[in-house]
Design a protein around this nucleic acid. Structure first.
Lengths: 112, 112
DNA sequence: TTTACATGCATAAGAAAATTATGTATATTT
DNA sequence: AAATATACATAATTTTCTTATGCATGTAAA
């Protein structure tokens, strides 16, 4: 992660969401995808990414498959069934967070 | 703070923003105002709030004025000139964060 | 009447999640 | 040959929060 402190806490949500779209991804690929989607605004550091992936795996949300491509190791991660459920929950939390912050910061947005 | 991990990093922004609207506020008042504005969804804990206020004061973004009301102490905080500038910057960061997260999570929102 | 809840401040211990700094290794580009 | 890109990983430190605790006054409920 980088730049704004606000990104703290959202890395897991980002990883899970990307995996709902791509079936399986490896770590480096995730960093590149995020950089591309955010026009370089968000750069995920390895020090944040790899521990996060390991934790998601340990928690049963991701499965791993190691492959050797071009003589280099890749660890492909994919969502488990439980991971898919958790992703939906995380995305709801994010939507809720955004709505709450807009209500706080912008009087035009009122919570129902 | 409470509930979602996503609130990490946004407490300072919330405090500063509220102070642009209310001229001066004291700690307990801030907790109640946030609870009210978010329909109870976000509860700021004292363990997070008071250190945050002290840090903002130490950083020159807030000024303090102690008053005794109903035989109880209140520490009223207000934005300094520098605090007002920093608030604008923090609010831009928040808007940027929201736009970025929506681009990541919702393909309909694309960054320009 | 005393017990709970509300108001008002504060700090300390610990957890969570990042940053920064390294380390290893191979492949490609300059 | 050196720099950059690809690909993983961990350790030390920092930031920011939660949880727990402490003090003090005022009011409502049992």
């Amino acid at each position: 992660m980088s730049n704004s402190k606000l990104y703290k806490g959202s890395l897991t949500t980002i990883i899970l969401k990307l995996l709902t779209e791509s079936d399986k991804m490896y770590g480096y690929e995730i960093t590149q995808k995020v950089k591309e989607l955010t026009k370089g605004e968000l750069k995920i550091t390895e020090g944040a990414l790899y521990p996060a992936l390991h934790k998601l795996e340990a928690g049963g949300l991701l499965d791993v498959e190691v492959k050797k491509v071009d003589n280099r190791l890749r660890k492909y991660y994919k969502l488990t069934e439980n991971g898919t459920k958790e992703t939906a929950s995380k995305l709801e939390e994010l939507a809720s967070y955004i709505a709450t912050m807009q209500a706080l910061v912008n009087p035009k947005f009122n919570l129902e």
